[in-house]
Write a protein that binds this DNA or RNA. Structure first.
Length: 366
DNA sequence: GTATGCTTTCGGC
DNA sequence: TTACGGCCGAAAGCATAC
């Protein structure tokens, strides 16, 4: 058993890059791909922006109106997301990438891990050449650039891919892992978001090197055994998480923004029932059943709240979804004064429909 | 004490 | 000055079972 070589391939500013390719006139302008909520003309958020727009501080997640303010003096282009089209492009690219991997794991619409240990016979020279070839192949077939990180595990591959982009290629051999990670801010580690970053900073830990040297017992006291162990290992570039082909999703959900904020259940339920129908459609298309149903509410202050219910047995019964969603909203509204801005429905605890049938068959037939 | 399951929140893209 | 989507998986926090 030889050491692993793992790649992370990340498509650059994916949605906006696809729009640039679709319409080359956009090429040198700020391009902002938006999710319009439909509430008012410009309500909604930025999904992705190209690098020209990013120079003006426009990035993923900011309000569209704020993006417009930042770009008011330039000839910027605002486009609505065309998710269906991006998904088709994604599928083609993922199929290219899959062909280069011993084991392939798609993480999101624009990101995938490739375990190339066998293919490269553990050689980083081979891995570098392979990564360059993958970039060429994706560009020649789809005219899109990507950034690739190569390293001994997912953790290092991911940080390496982020290190140089767009159109980057960063290879970190095992003997360089510590030197590579040490100066980087802890924020770069998966699992360290804004909140954890703050907590670490109060402990005097800003860089990965400082995290590596930090007393492990103190880390346990603050974050608990599991998270402390993860942080400690991560700071040393240790990560055994395998690259694994992903099967069916673990949850399916739909969310939508209400015309106006409300806590009136008669205004919420028609929307929620529609979301039930959409989620039910997704579920049955994939021939899945679920055991849990959740509602979630984004309140006026943008705080996220949710409630869920788990059944005894898996189901795909639309009426049961609607009744459960009604019950959950009634309960939620009774115990809070919040006004809902957006409402969502989620099913989780998913299973293949036939798996259930098999169980039943073997039970009755067996 | 550890494992397991459920609910809720967090955070990345 | 403010402004604010739609997904997904991971993790936290809690309860219960062994």
């Amino acid at each position: 058993m030889q050491a692993r070589i793992i790649m992370l391939v990340d498509l650059d500013y994916f949605f906006a890059q696809i729009e640039e390719k679709r319409n080359p006139a956009l090429k040198d302008k700020p391009v902002v791909v938006c999710v319009y909520s439909g509430r008012t003309k410009d309500s909604g958020a930025v999904s992705t922006a190209n690098y020209v727009a990013r120079k003006y501080g426009v990035k993923s997640g900011i309000p569209i109106s704020l993006a417009k303010t930042k770009l008011k003096d330039v000839d910027a282009v605002f486009l609505p997301v065309d998710k269906e089209y991006y998904s088709k492009v994604s599928e083609k690219i993922m199929n290219i990438l899959r062909g280069y991997a011993d084991i392939f794991e798609q993480v999101s619409v624009d990101e995938a891990y490739l375990d190339v240990s066998q293919k490269t016979r553990g050689s980083y020279l081979d891995a570098s050449e392979l990564a360059a070839r993958i970039k060429d192949d994706v560009f020649n077939q789809q005219k899109l650039t990507c950034s690739i990180g190569v390293g001994p595990n997912k953790l290092v591959a991911k940080i390496a891919a982020d290190y140089q982009k767009p159109d980057g290629l960063t290879v970190v051999k095992p003997e360089y892992v510590l030197r590579f990670l040490s100066p980087l801010p802890v924020r770069r580690l998966v699992g360290v978001g804004r909140k954890t970053e703050q907590r670490l900073e109060t402990l005097g830990v800003k860089t990965i090197a400082q995290l590596a040297r930090f007393d492990i017992q103190k880390l346990v006291d603050v974050f608990g055994r599991n998270l402390a162990a993860y942080f400690h290992n991560a700071s040393l570039g240790i990560d055994e998480d395998p690259v694994e082909e992903r099967g069916e999703p673990e949850s399916l959900s739909k969310i939508s923004t209400l015309k106006e904020d409300t806590n009136d259940i008669t205004k919420i339920l028609p929307v929620a029932y529609h979301l039930c129908e959409e989620v039910h459609k997704k579920l049955t298309q994939r021939q899945l059943v679920c055991r849990s149903v959740s509602i979630y509410v984004v309140a006026s202050d943008l705080g996220m709240h949710s409630r869920s219910k788990t059944f005894e047995n898996p189901t795909s019964d639309l009426q049961l979804f609607k009744d459960t969603v009604k019950e959950l909203f009634e309960k939620f509204l009774a115990e809070t004064d919040l006004q809902a801005r957006r409402v969502g429905v989620k099913v989780s605890n998913l299973d293949k429909k036939e798996a259930m049938q098999k169980q039943l068959t073997s039970f009755f037939g067996g």
